[in-house]
């Protein structure tokens, strides 16, 4: 279950990175701001949850 959750949140980080790269290829401009925010949010939530899941795994050991 923990492995599944880890994989799921890796997906968040990967998706966030892809969005950020694709949107930033058009530069930082008014129209791309929401895309940049979205990419950063996905990466932030992914990393935050990965830390939480890792902590649970450590405490279970």
């Amino acid at each position: 279950m923990i492995r599944l959750r880890t994989g799921f949140y890796f997906l968040y980080v990967a998706l966030g990175t892809i969005i950020l790269v694709r949107v930033l290829s058009f530069g930082v401009r008014f129209e791309t701001i929401t895309g940049i925010v979205l990419g950063i949010l996905l990466i932030a939530l992914g990393i935050y949850r990965l830390f939480q899941v890792t902590r649970v795994r450590t405490s279970k050991r």
């Binding site: 799921f8 997906l11 968040y12 998706l15 892809i18 969005i19 694709r22 949107v23 290829s25 058009f26 401009r29 008014f30 129209e31 791309t32 895309g35």
Partner: peptide, 23 residues
């Protein structure tokens, strides 16, 4: 919802369309 976003941003999303629509 996560899978829809993944497939959507990988295969359907075109940043140039977003910029054009907003303009």
């Amino acid at each position: 919802e996560t899978l829809i976003l993944c497939f959507g941003f990988l295969f359907a999303f075109q940043p140039q369309i977003l910029i054009h629509t907003m303009h």
